[in-house]
Nucleic acid binder design. Sequence first.
DNA 1: GTCTATATATCGATAGAC
DNA 2: GTCTATCGATATATAGAC
Lengths: 221, 221
Amino acid sequence: MALTNLPAPGSRTIQMKKRPIGAKRRLNETRILRAAERVFAEQGFAAASTAAIARIAGLPKANLHYYFRTKEALYRRVLESIIAGWVETADPIEAGADPRRALSAYIAGKIEYSRLRPHASKVFANEILHGAPSIAGRLRGDLKTWLEAKCRVIEGWSAAGKMARVDAKHLFFIIWAATQTYADFDVQAAALLGRRKLRPADYRAARALVTLMVLSACGLS
Amino acid sequence: MALTNLPAPGSRTIQMKKRPIGAKRRLNETRILRAAERVFAEQGFAAASTAAIARIAGLPKANLHYYFRTKEALYRRVLESIIAGWVETADPIEAGADPRRALSAYIAGKIEYSRLRPHASKVFANEILHGAPSIAGRLRGDLKTWLEAKCRVIEGWSAAGKMARVDAKHLFFIIWAATQTYADFDVQAAALLGRRKLRPADYRAARALVTLMVLSACGLS
DNA sequence: GTCTATATATCGATAGAC
DNA sequence: GTCTATCGATATATAGAC
C-alpha cells in the first residue's frame, strides 16, 4: 500500500494556501499569450524571438519555456484564440435574420474587430500568407464546414427572394479582405491618408463604404 | 606613360568575346531576383535564408553575396520591381476614360496580377503587414502623391456627374484588398473552396463579384 | 516555480584559393 | 567571377542551482 498516498497521474499536489490552484499559472500564461500575440503580429512567426516575448511579458525567457515548451506550441495557442474570435464575428449571419441588418452588423463587427484587435488579424494574416503551415488542416476541415453552413444561410436568403443571388463564398472572401485590410495594412492606409495612425473616423468611412458595396451588390440598397 | 594603358576607373576590361559586356551579370542577377521573390513570398523576409535563395537560383551562396552584398539590399531590389508593377496596374484610371470601363479594367488587371504574380503580391503584403520597415518613406512620399492624383481622377468623374460620390481613397484601399486577397490568401480561398489550388474560373468569379460591388456602389450598374 | 548559464543549431557575411 | 571553408552573431531550448 506504499503508493496509495501518491497523487493520481495528472492531479496536483494539495495546496493549503488561499490562492486558487493554478492561479499563478493562468496569470503568467495570459501575460505570455498577450505579449506573444503582439510580437507575432509585429514581427511574424520567424522573426519573433521568445526572448522578446518574455521581455514584454515581464519574465525571464526560461520561464516562458517552462509554460510553453516550444515557440511553435505558444504560437498555436495564440492562433487558436484568434480563430475562435474570428469565427464568432459571423454570428449575425443566421437564417432567421434580415439580410440587410445581418450583413451590415457583420461588416460593422469585422471593422470593429480590426480596430480593436489589429494584432490578432495580423497574426492570422501572416499565417495564411506563408501557406498556412499550422492551420491548413483546419481550413480544409472544420472551417470549410463552418463556411459552407454560413453560405447556405446566404443562399437561403436569395432563394427566398430577400436578396439577389451572389457567389456566397466569394462574398465572404471579399468582406474578409475589405475589413481585415484595415488591421493588416493599417500602416499603409494611415500613411496614404497622411496620418500617424488611423482614427475612428477612418474606420467609420471604411465601414460605410464596405457596407454600401456589399448591400448594393446584393440588391439591398 | 606606364599607366596610360590601364582602364579608366569604373570602366571594364576590354572583352573580345561575342557575349555583350555584363551579360552574365544580368543573367545571374535576374536568376537571383526571381528566386528571391519566390522565397521572400513563401517564407517572409525574416525566415527567408540567402542559402535557400541561392539554391533555387542554382548557384553557391557566396555568389549571391557577390551580386547583392546583403540580404536587405536584395530584398529592396525585389520590392522596387514589385512596386513598379503595382503602380502600373492603375494606368486605366485616367481622366479621359469612362468610369465604368476604367474601373472594370482596373479590377480585371489587379485580379490578373494576383493570378499571374502571386509571389509579388505576397512580398508586398508581408512588408506592409510588419510595419513597412523598408518602404514607409515611399508610402508617405511619392506613393501618397501618386494616390492623390488617382483620387482626383475619381473625384473629377463624380463632379462631372459620371458616377456617384464615394470616398476615393477608401475605394482604392478596398479594391486593393479585394483583389490582392486572391494572391495573398490564395491558400485560404483554395482550401475553403475545396481545391488544391485556385482555378481560372475562381479568378473569373472573383473579378465578376468585385466589379459588381464597385460599380453598383458607384452607381454605375 | 524561478532564473543563470550554457549547449546546440543556423544564419548572414566574408576570407582567400582558384 | 566562382566556390569552399569558416567566423561571429543570434536563436531555441534546456540543465541545474536555488
